[in-house]
Write a protein that binds this DNA or RNA. Structure first.
Lengths: 219, 219
DNA sequence: TGTCTGTTGGTGACTAAGTCACCGACCCGG
DNA sequence: CCGGGTCGGTGACTTAGTCACCAACAGACA
């Protein structure tokens, strides 16, 4: 039998009976790009596991500035929905479907049953939690200690497409790094002067990935 | 019967049978001040719940700079040990006993049994996880967007003792905020000039808490 | 008691980053 | 082809972090 569960390698060892329960009680949901999945005042009612697409989690400060905390990709579990579910806590962070997303919604009762009865499922969930914690540790270290030019170079490499293009505005890049638009503009100018990128309205083209790579590693 | 479990209000509703199991299988450990509880290359072998004392979790960058991520206080659970236990992941963060600590060590098997069988215990653990995530979100926002002088003022208020004294060096305060020692020194000078604090070697005295408070809220 | 040593904090000069105000170029709908 | 909104560029300025260095201090010890 073919099921979404097959797409999650960590769940391959799931006990047959529990696997059937999970399959029966969960359902696939489609979320259009741009939907706010959770955020201040919006608690979800099920545990979400992403099948296809990307969810971006970011923090918005009162002064309006934003920073991207992390992303949830295909075949990852969105622990923040879980945390909301189980601890009834309020978050200032917001989760947005960055592309059209298809995900599996596991109802609360089913989630709890799985956690209780399956070692495999438990390990899956806790692994997702530790990944988030580690991601956040790294983010904090980068924001606190690493120079913006190095981080920008790295981000450009991360987010370039097949053709080396990045379809983001300077403001969006600034949000990725938690810095200001002007800073990104100036750094991109410098990168362009050095021949590493070509900038156009709403787009950055990586022209010399090797040089950017070397630069981003240089400290 | 008197047990350490009584000190954890979230566990008060624990099912009697499970409570007995937990009590029987766990043991209290004493950890002297300064002990590295977990860190790169040091995975713990049990889930830790703090009875008395404080554990500081901080991140050390390659360049040697440090930042305090969060603290685990009495009657809180140290989720990072759990994450290590269940996900076998490596962390760059380090946990240190900031004072003499007494804690309860719950062995892995017992922890898993409790998670599996008790809704109350499950909720306790997940609540601890969400608290950590939220703490980290706030930390990131502060580091990325808030001025150091405001954050320093806030930190001084947080960490002053009964008598208004803070027994930390400028370097230690800098680590609390993830900034540089010189920056802290200069800000403290300015605070002293304004009559808000009195600085001495290895010590800062809060002289006008109200003014610091107003200042730290001023943006 | 004086000396030595490691720790702590002070300082100036400089670079990096963030802020503010403003402008011009571009894009799309009408 | 006009007009409003978005996007990016710029100069002047403030805030933060870095670097190199020194002086004051505390505790160990001869």
């Amino acid at each position: 039998m073919q099921s979404w569960i097959d797409h999650f390698p960590e769940l391959s060892g799931l006990e047959p009976e529990l696997r059937a329960t999970l399959d029966r009680q969960s359902r696939v949901v489609e979320v259009p790009r741009g939907t706010v999945i959770f955020g201040p005042g919006q608690a979800p009612d099920a545990h979400l596991m992403v099948l296809e697409g990307v969810v971006r989690v970011h923090q918005v400060a009162e002064n309006g500035r934003e920073i991207v905390l992390y992303r949830v990709h295909s075949h990852e579990s969105c622990v923040l929905t879980t945390a909301c579910l189980l601890a009834y806590e309020e978050y200032s962070a917001e989760g947005i479907a960055e592309s059209d997303v298809s995900a599996v919604a596991v109802p609360r009762t089913c989630f709890e049953e799985m956690i209780g009865r399956s070692e495999v499922f438990r390990r899956f969930v806790f692994a997702a939690y530790s990944k988030r914690l580690t991601d956040l540790f790294v983010t904090i270290e980068e924001v606190a200690f690493r120079r913006v030019d190095l981080r920008l170079a790295q981000k450009l490499l991360e987010r370039q497409g097949e053709d080396g293009d990045i379809l983001l505005t300077h403001q969006q890049l600034a949000t990725e790094l938690g810095t200001a638009r002007e800073v990104v503009s100036r750094q991109l100018q410098e990168f362009q002067r050095r021949g590493w990128v070509a900038v156009a309205r709403g787009r950055v083209h990586v022209a010399d990935a090797a040089a950017l790579e070397a630069f981003s590693r240089s400290a």
